[in-house]
């Protein structure tokens, strides 16, 4: 700390200056995206690249909704995200709680197998999963995205770690009072698990919204495209339409950024819960 004692002001300036530089680099592309999305078509293709629109216009957004089917993609993304989040959080929370606090044959062995399977990248399953869903008639339907995502090992793991800290006395007391296990789960456990439920919900919804490879594979009909899949396909067609693509990027990524800003405490807690404390 010798340096800091001699020149605390200089060191402070350096630390904060570096952080300011870093924050500029992370935020500038996002701010520039919003700015270009408000420019008239062709305006951004100039040298030097303009930072602000000469005249603010929402023409690109109108164009996306009127001719590129953006409204439809938005609905697809919203519906899929909500359904996947609701179902998978329910299944993962119930299973995570049971692995932590209830007794059943083979519990620890099953959990170990699940943990071991975390090393398998999900892409290993994709080809056969596609064929399986084809057999079930789920390819090219919402179900093709929803069904495989209804439970996840990581979610179960995170909930279990959290639920381990629930004191057994709490459960015993409720059992002695004659409550059955489902009643206990609903009225005793659910309130205790609320923070981890919110964390998991935020994680799952952002992950589902942003997911690209699987929806790209399983959804072929453009009517069913989610925003990322639609945006990737549009960007291959409209390579030169800078302003239009930026408007598409805003619509795709702004919702998740806003959700993150509002609920970031839960999100960041989840990040460190799965790693440092686990």
């Amino acid at each position: 700390m010798a340096v800091c004692r001699v020149r605390p002001r200089l060191a402070g300036l350096l630390v904060n200056g570096l952080l300011l530089g870093g924050a500029t680099i992370t935020l500038l592309p996002l701010v520039w995206m919003v700015s270009v999305s408000l420019m008239s078509p062709g305006e951004a293709s100039a040298f030097p690249p303009p930072l602000l629109p000469g005249r603010v216009t929402f023409a690109n957004y109108r164009e996306l909704f009127a001719h590129a089917g953006m409204g439809r993609y938005l609905v697809n993304s919203v519906v899929l995200t909500i359904v996947v989040t609701l179902v998978s959080v329910l299944f993962n929370v119930a299973a995570g709680y049971a692995f932590a606090k209830l007794r059943f044959a083979g519990r620890d062995r099953i959990f170990k197998v699940l943990l071991g399977a975390l090393v398998i990248p999900s892409q290993v399953a994709m080809v056969p999963l596609f064929l399986l869903l084809k057999q079930l008639g789920l390819v090219n339907t919402y179900g093709g995205v929803i069904v495989p995502a209804m439970a996840g090992i990581f979610g179960i793991f995170v909930v279990r770690q959290y639920a381990l800290s629930i004191p057994d006395d709490l459960l015993e007391a409720a059992r002695i009072d004659g409550a059955n296990e489902f009643r206990i789960f609903r009225s005793v456990i659910a309130p205790v698990l609320k923070p981890i439920v919110v964390t998991l919900a935020v994680f799952t919804s952002l992950g589902t919204w942003n997911d690209f490879m699987w929806p790209l594979i399983v959804l072929n009909d453009s009517e069913l495209y989610t925003l990322p899949v639609a945006l990737a396909s549009l960007s291959r067609e409209h390579v030169q339409d800078n302003e239009l693509m930026m408007a598409g990027s805003v619509l795709t990524t702004l919702p998740v950024l806003l959700v993150f800003l509002v609920l970031q405490r839960y999100y960041i807690e989840g990040l460190t819960l799965g790693s440092v404390k686990g």
């Binding site: 904060n16 952080l19 945006l231 795709t252």
Partner: peptide, 30 residues
């Protein structure tokens, strides 16, 4: 020595939560 730690943390973390496809489109233009 850092001032506004919460702001900087959020700002530096923001790209992580963005949609990969959307920011890839941005960077293609950058």
């Amino acid at each position: 020595l850092v001032k506004f730690q919460a702001f900087f943390r959020t700002a530096l973390f923001a790209p992580v939560v963005t949609t990969l496809v959307a920011v890839a489109v941005i960077w293609r233009y950058l």
